[in-house]
Structure formats: C-alpha cells, structure tokens
Amino acid sequence: MAAPDRAELRAQLVRTMIAGEVATPRQNNLLHFRRMAARNPYYLFGLDLKRSWTERDVLEVMVERCGVNPDPMHLYGDDTIDPELTLDALEAMGDRIGRAARRAEPVVLATGHPATLTPVYQAVSVALRASGCKVLTPAAGWSYEIERYHGTEPRRIVYAPEGVAMVEDGDGRTQHTHDPFPMEAMLAELAAESADWPDLAIADHGWAGAAGEAGIDTVGFADCNDPALFAGAAEGKIDVVVPLDDGISSHHYAPMTAFLLDRAGLG
C-alpha cells in the first residue's frame, strides 16, 4: 500500500473511528482512570509510577496526550481521541523506528491485542529485519497462571510469524492481556543469558509498561481507556504513545502502518 499523506490518513482515522469520535464508552474510560489512580496493578501495566496520581490528574494527562473530552462532568456516552495527537505520535514513533533501522538495533515487538494489532507489528518487524535489525524472541513457551472467576487459567508466550510476542491460553488461542509478566520474563531470560539486550521495544499494554520500566526505549499504542502508558510517558518512562482505538478490524490499520513505515524511511 502506498503511504497516505497526513491529511489523507487523518481522514481515514476519523472515518474508521480509530481516532476522532471513538466507540469507547466514557464511563469505561473514567472507571479505568479511577482504577489506575488507585494503583490497581491490572491498570498500571507493570509501571511503577512515582507521582501521586489523582483521578483529576489522570483525566488531565489523557486530555493532553490522548485528546479525551476535557469536561469532568461528561460521565456517559462516547469519548474522543484527537487525531492530530495520533498523527504527531505516529511521526515520533516512525522517527524512533527509523533510527533503530539505521543503527541496526536489537528490538522486541509484542502485543496484548493479537486479534487486531498483530499485522501492524509484523509489518514493522519485516522492515526492521530487512534493515539489519535483530528481532529478539526470548522466553518462548514461558508460562504463568492468571486468576479467573472459576479458578486459574494458563497463559504462555508464543511468537507470531515475524517474531511478534503474544500470549495464548491452554487451548492454543491467543488472548488479550494487560499483564507485564511475559515481558518481564523475556527480559529476565535475556539478562540471564547475557544475550542481546533490546535497544527498542515496540509494544502495547503490559508488554510496553514492563519494557519502559526496565529502562528500554519504548514506543507503543494505547487506547483512551488505557491511561497507564500515557502517565508513563508523562513520567519519562515511555518514549512515545500513539493514542488510538486498539479494537478496530485489523485491515483498517493498514494505511496507518504504511504511514509509519514511510516516516521511518522503511516504506
């Protein structure tokens, strides 16, 4: 796909509701903001945030960095993501990926949204490999248990083609996850083996939070109900967070991917 220009991509992002008026309910956003402020680990994505974040603080950083509705009395209905902020962050992400390509840096790629974002990561991985980067794939098969209402369920690290990390359940189905533990396990294995250490992580959810917490340059994607990465960016732990609806049909991200690679000089 030929890369769209900024105006063309902006129109496509708004049309597909990746940005602009999005389908994420405001009440869900506010609930997640409240839980992050309360330090619920599931909503911190592995980040050890240093500030004392109040609910108002979280709303303010989400207005600034994501473009949600700034009215604290907007309690119900849909919310917003500012497409200009999305485009600015895509350009910054592209710049950092381009630098990784020019330096042939070791990288890790991982997603907690395998059903929707995997093709984006795969395209970036292919381009980085072609430029000489080493895509690291540690801790394949590492497993852990998560708590569920009916007991526990297994999760284990698997890699999609092109070296994109994700987790699957005991039946081999890939799963959405906020957990930082898989990225922590990947980095622990690399450290224990004195193997290549990633100069860049391209990720989302807990994969990104754990990488940023470990001091790795981290760029990633986050929805407007995922405030932790934006707070992490405000504290300097995450380099770039691209605000977008991360649950749209995967083919709608193709123009964004082409724009990102073109910005990186890898189109």
Rank of each mutant, 00 (worst) to 15 (best):
D5I: 12
L13A: 12
I18C: 02
I18F: 00
G20Q: 00
G20Y: 00
E21Y: 04
V22Q: 11
N29H: 07
L30R: 13
L31P: 00
R35W: 05
R35A: 09
M36A: 09
M36L: 15
M36R: 07
R39F: 09
N40C: 10
P41F: 06
P41H: 04
Y43I: 07
Y43Q: 12
L44P: 04
K50E: 15
S52M: 07
E60N: 12
V63R: 00
E64V: 00
R65H: 10
C66H: 04
G67H: 02
V68Q: 02
V68M: 05
P70C: 03
H74W: 13
H74A: 12
P83S: 05
E84G: 14
L85W: 00
T86A: 13
L87Y: 00
D88R: 14
A89G: 04
L90A: 05
E91P: 02
M93E: 13
M93C: 07
M93A: 15
G98L: 03
A100R: 09
R102P: 11
R102S: 12
R103H: 15
E105C: 05
V108H: 08
L109V: 09
A110P: 09
A110M: 14
P114C: 09
L117R: 05
T118F: 10
V120K: 04
V120M: 14
Q122I: 04
A123D: 05
V126S: 12
A127S: 12
S131C: 01
G132E: 07
G132Y: 15
L136G: 12
L136C: 08
T137F: 01
T137G: 10
T137M: 15
A140H: 03
W142F: 14
S143Y: 01
E145M: 13
I146C: 12
E147N: 10
G151W: 01
G151F: 01
T152K: 14
P154E: 07
R155K: 13
R156S: 10
G163Y: 10
A165V: 10
M166T: 14
M166S: 11
M166W: 10
V167I: 15
G172A: 09
T174M: 11
T174V: 07
T174G: 06
H176D: 06
T177H: 00
H178A: 10
A185R: 15
M186D: 11
M186A: 11
E189S: 05
E189M: 08
L190N: 03
A191G: 08
A191L: 03
E193Y: 00
E193I: 00
W197F: 07
W197S: 03
W197H: 03
P198R: 05
D199I: 01
A201V: 14
W207D: 01
W207G: 04
A208K: 06
A210L: 04
A210Y: 10
A211F: 13
E213G: 15
G215V: 02
I216K: 10
D217T: 10
V219T: 03
G220Y: 06
D223K: 06
C224V: 13
P227G: 01
P227T: 08
A228L: 12
A228I: 06
F230R: 03
A233T: 08
A234L: 03
G236Q: 02
K237N: 00
I238V: 14
V240D: 08
V241S: 02
P243R: 02
I248T: 07
S249W: 14
S250V: 01
H251T: 02
Y253L: 01
Y253Q: 07
P255T: 13
M256C: 08
A258H: 09
A258S: 13
F259A: 08
L260V: 13
D262Q: 14
R263M: 00
A264W: 09
